[in-house]
Design a protein around this nucleic acid. Structure first.
Length: 307
RNA sequence: GGAGGGGUGGCCGAGCGGUCAAUGGCAGCAGACUGUAAAUCUGCCGACUUCGCGUCUACGAAGGUUCGAAUCCUUCCCCCUCCA
């Protein structure tokens, strides 16, 4: 009987990493990253990855393990996470998933319909066609072969239209048909701890965290990446602050603007995350990180359910 | 002192006699979410509201012209540029 998998989630800057770290210390755990951006290796500071000291004190997995040129996906992360969970089982350690990528967590805990990988060229091609044909024509063409998916998509949602088309092109089968396939959850028991902070508290945390990042040298970190002229299509480049910092290096934004905009975007992201947690997730325990008793509350709960 | 330009909803910024509670952007709020998810997209966004193309208060202030003004006129207050 394998130990349950602990899941520590919540909006960005809510204190997930610290909580997961402490739980791992106390329970012989391993912190497994469940955040899309922290999986890439390019921006350890900007994406608020655990520090080397923290990583030395407790085992951490899946942080900065992919090159920026790589492309993660929910399903791919799931298989990486499953491997780490299995490894924990073999080592007799408690896996503690820590991160705020709601879709990833759901993909693991609830499953996702299986479907083949799509060659990246098809996405480029589809994007080019959306550009050339225009949204309406693209949508109409997709509707001829996958009316079900079109029915579900908002006309302006380019990303999802492109996704539906590339799957159709790659497999000859509508995305909607693939999605009818069973979504099998990963085996095991999951205990989900949700950090649900007060908005004003989180706002302040996001702000000071960005200032700390500046002190820690995010500018240099981002500059180094910028100078390698990365392909703008790489998903890892979407870390909050990176596009703004790049614009700054191009002379388009002052550092003050970078700060303001990056903080705004981060805050907006946190809001979206909270909406997700509110409607797409059923946590086992909800704790307020501002209370300073989050750890105690979590410990108490875990003891109670015998984890 | 003289010559110009400007003051619009939380901010920026259109409008320049009616169809304007006022384009658009930002911020904010709510929501969606099956392989790009720190992504992508949607709705709301003066107040009131039985949420209705309803009522009220609104475009620096006060008057005036007009059937009717954010849009025209007068005076005043404030801001910016230039000349002195």
């Amino acid at each position: 009987m394998a130990a349950p998998v602990l899941v520590v989630t919540g909006p960005t800057a809510s204190g997930k990493s610290a909580l997961a770290l402490e739980l791992a210390r106390r329970r012989r755990g391993v912190v497994v990253n469940a955040d899309a951006m922290q999986t890439y290796d390019a921006f350890p500071i900007l994406t608020a990855q655990p520090t080397p000291e923290e990583r030395a004190s407790v085992p951490h997995r899946l942080y900065g393990v992919l090159p920026l040129s790589d492309a993660l996906s929910a399903a791919r992360w799931r298989s990486l996470a499953e491997a780490e969970i299995a490894r924990c089982g073999a080592e007799g350690r408690v896996p503690i998933l820590c991160g705020g990528s709601g879709l990833y967590l759901r993909t693991l805990m609830k499953g996702i319909s299986a479907m083949p990988d799509v060659p990246p060229e098809l996405r480029d091609k589809a994007n080019g066609e959306w550009e050339k044909m225009g949204a309406d024509a693209f949508r109409a063409r997709l509707a001829e072969r996958d009316p079900v998916i079109v029915e579900r998509l908002k006309p302006g949602d380019r990303q999802r239209h492109v996704r539906a088309w590339e799957v159709l092109e790659a497999t000859g089968r509508p995305l909607s048909a693939w999605q009818e396939g069973a979504a099998t959850p990963t085996a095991g028991r999951f205990v989900t701890l949700l950090l649900a902070p007060d908005r004003a508290w989180l706002r302040a945390r996001i702000e000071t965290r960005f200032d700390v990042m500046l002190e820690q040298g995010v500018r240099a970190e981002a500059r180094a990446v910028f100078d390698t002229k990365p392909d703008p299509r790489w998903p890892g480049l979407k870390a909050h602050g990176a596009p703004e910092l790049f614009a700054h290096f191009r002379g388009e934004l002052s550092l003050d603007d970078v700060r303001r905009i990056a903080i705004d975007h981060t805050r907006q992201y946190a809001k979206r995350q909270m909406t997700w947690f509110r409607h797409q997730m059923t946590p086992d325990l909800v704790v307020d990180p501002a209370s300073n008793q989050a750890l105690e509350a979590a410990e108490k709960y875990l003891d109670k359910i015998g984890v």
